[in-house]
């Protein structure tokens, strides 16, 4: 049986895509890749389809994937569950009458494991469908594939793409930020930081020293309270109406630990909470807690890590 893995790259291939390749090995021996405007990934699959386009239009990309599915007689499509991949592949599901199942965390005895009810419950699911199955792997929940091929690259070039959707304006982020879902360490701050200035200066300083000393990817996170206050934009929000993260280490700094916040971070490997209130609910999920005033404790911690 053949699997097609939809790959994504930013400079190099995304880890979420590598997990999807590794996951696909549970089902198929022959594993092909499909990627847009990049040749990353050819070391990880047996054949790589590269679509070259001048505009990224989900509909058009989905239709090109459909052609590959038909010509190669693909039964399974795998992908790393990112919002951009979901946009393309959910449309593909619509045009191919496929089953779509995203955010899968594991595969146990024939059952797919996936969190539901805002990560409050873990479900196990059996898929029995004769048609195409499109399955997304939740980032950071599965091993990464290792390079093992030097595959054939098949290029598809599309020019002068027309679409009914027009991009009017893009406000690019000033600096390239690491997304909270992709980081090894997330440093999140809440209302307890007191002000936008404090939030940015203290947390960014901590992020900088952690990155320097550990070499790991460190991202800035936020509670809804500080997003609503306008201290930072919504792309940093962790929780029910923000992003779900499961990094190696999550810092909750001045965050009370409301149930909607926990929904987005409780699967982190380690959680460290800093809060002046020893009764704060965040301590119920934390592995390590420090009961202290942020304004005194954080500068001291930063200095100590710096001189470590």
């Amino acid at each position: 049986m053949k699997a097609l893995v939809y790959l994504e790259a930013e400079n190099s291939i995304k880890e979420a895509s590598l997990s999807a390749i590794e996951f696909s090995k549970n089902f198929c021996k022959e594993i092909y890749g499909f990627i847009v405007n990049s040749e990353s990934g050819n070391k990880f699959v047996q054949k790589l389809y590269v679509l070259e386009v001048d505009r990224f239009i989900p509909k058009i990309i989905a239709k090109e994937i459909q052609k590959v599915i038909e010509s190669e007689k693909i039964e399974y499509v795998f992908f790393g569950s990112t919002s951009s991949a979901i946009e393309v592949l959910s449309y593909l599901a619509g045009i191919t009458n496929a089953i779509f199942f995203e955010d899968v965390e594991g595969y146990e005895n024939g059952y797919f494991i996936k969190s539901i009810y805002s990560n409050k419950i873990i479900g196990s699911f059996k898929i029995s469908y004769d048609g195409i199955k499109i399955i997304g792997i939740k980032p950071k929940s599965y091993n990464l594939a290792k390079p093992m091929y030097n595959s054939e690259i098949i290029k598809i070039k599309l020019e002068n793409i027309k679409d009914d959707i027009e991009l009017i304006e893009v406000k690019a982020k000033e600096t390239k930020e690491i997304d909270v879902t992709e980081a090894d360490i997330v440093v999140s701050g809440g209302r307890g930081l007191g002000s936008a200035e404090n939030y940015h200066s203290l947390l960014k300083e901590l992020i900088k020293v952690l990155n320097e000393k550990t070499g790991l990817k460190v991202a800035l996170g936020a509670s809804q309270a500080v997003v609503d206050a306008g201290w930072i934009d919504h792309s940093h929000q962790v929780g029910q109406t923000g992003k779900t993260v499961s990094p190696l280490l999550y810092f909750a700094i001045g965050i009370s630990g409301a149930i909607q916040h926990l929904a987005g971070m409780r699967t982190s490997k380690y959680i460290i909470a800093i809060n002046k209130d020893s009764e704060a609910p965040i301590f119920k999920v934390a592995d390590y807690g420090i009961v202290a005033d942020i304004n005194i404790f954080l500068p001291e911690l930063i200095e100590k890590i710096k001189s470590y």
């Binding site: 989905a62 449309y91 599901a93 995203e102 955010d103 996936k114």
Partner: peptide, 12 residues
């Protein structure tokens, strides 16, 4: 935890 309904309807 379904994100696919929008794309699915659009495709179909």
């Amino acid at each position: 935890n379904f994100h696919s309904i929008c794309g699915y309807l659009a495709g179909y």
